[in-house]
Design a protein around this nucleic acid. Structure first.
Lengths: 148, 148
DNA sequence: AAAAAGGGGACCAGATTGGTCCTATTTTCA
DNA sequence: TGAAAATAGGACCAATCTGGTCCCCTTTTT
């Protein structure tokens, strides 16, 4: 599976919404959830994680909510994924701490590691600024003639 | 989650193994499974799918098994994933047939589609030949100065 | 006839995921 | 001062996905 989880989707949506509606004030989860039809409680959890990750800040009480703490230029897709679903790796054995049955006689570990490095580099360079509506940039890297 | 499923892992391992041990003959699932400590029945299913996808061919009976039908140069990681776990998309709404609650007022659909296109292009250009042991190629695309 | 192999359906157990519920705490405001 | 609105976060649940097993069938070789 190469899918985004709902948590990640919701997180990205919320960050973009905060950016778009940012008037210096705080936007409550309720508003974001309603605008984008996201289950409110779930979005709450997501925002908590983004707070812990340092991308947004919150205040409680009336007129409370969340606000962006970093410009989207400094928020990468990779970091968002990481804060919402943990470290990214294509196979468990790519995570140093874990291993698999195949262990040594594995003929795909190294190439998969290399693919993963590519992937990681890509999503860690891709900022949410490039997700803004109307952003002209095509969100892709240069691809040589051959995929080497 | 951006993970490979076990099915995909096993499929890649088997294809590489067939390539490495190819002496024109057929290699039975049992052998591949034992060499790489893969559950035999599960690998059986995987091989069946790869057969239907046209990458390997099989014969039954004694001395039967599987053999590569296409050189690894013509087998891409993208296609292997597709044959083993269906179409690749980052979010359900990227699959035309499906939709999501957010539908219209979704602020991430387009950028995610663009990211997905990039990803698809990458894995559909990446061939298993580049997975061969000792392959010198670094398995990555050229990356410009900025991630555009 | 027996053995070895693939084809494939049925099924199951554990993990993951998406989502809800509830309570506590903080802040604002009437 | 008390109600309302908001975040913080633990507990939990239901549905789905995944990895894996089991069983039976057909084909091929010996």
């Amino acid at each position: 599976m190469l899918r985004f989880s709902k948590r990640v989707e919701y997180g990205l949506m919320a960050l973009l919404e905060l950016d778009a509606s940012a008037n210096g004030g705080y936007l409550p989860v309720k508003d974001i959830a309603e605008r984008h039809e996201i289950p409110q409680d779930l979005l709450g959890k997501v925002m908590q994680a983004l707070t812990r990750a340092g991308y947004v800040a919150s205040t409680k009480g009336m007129h409370g909510g969340y606000r962006l703490v970093q410009p989207l230029e400094r928020v990468t897709v990779g970091k968002v994924i990481e804060s919402l679903e943990g470290p990214v790796y294509l196979t468990p054995c790519c995570d140093d701490s874990k291993s698999c049955r195949q262990q040594d006689h594995c003929n795909i570990r190294r190439p998969i590691l290399r693919v993963q490095e590519h992937l990681l580099r890509y999503i860690s360079q891709l900022t949410l600024a490039e997700f803004r509506e109307g952003d002209p940039r095509p969100i892709e890297m240069n691809i040589g003639e051959q995929c080497v």
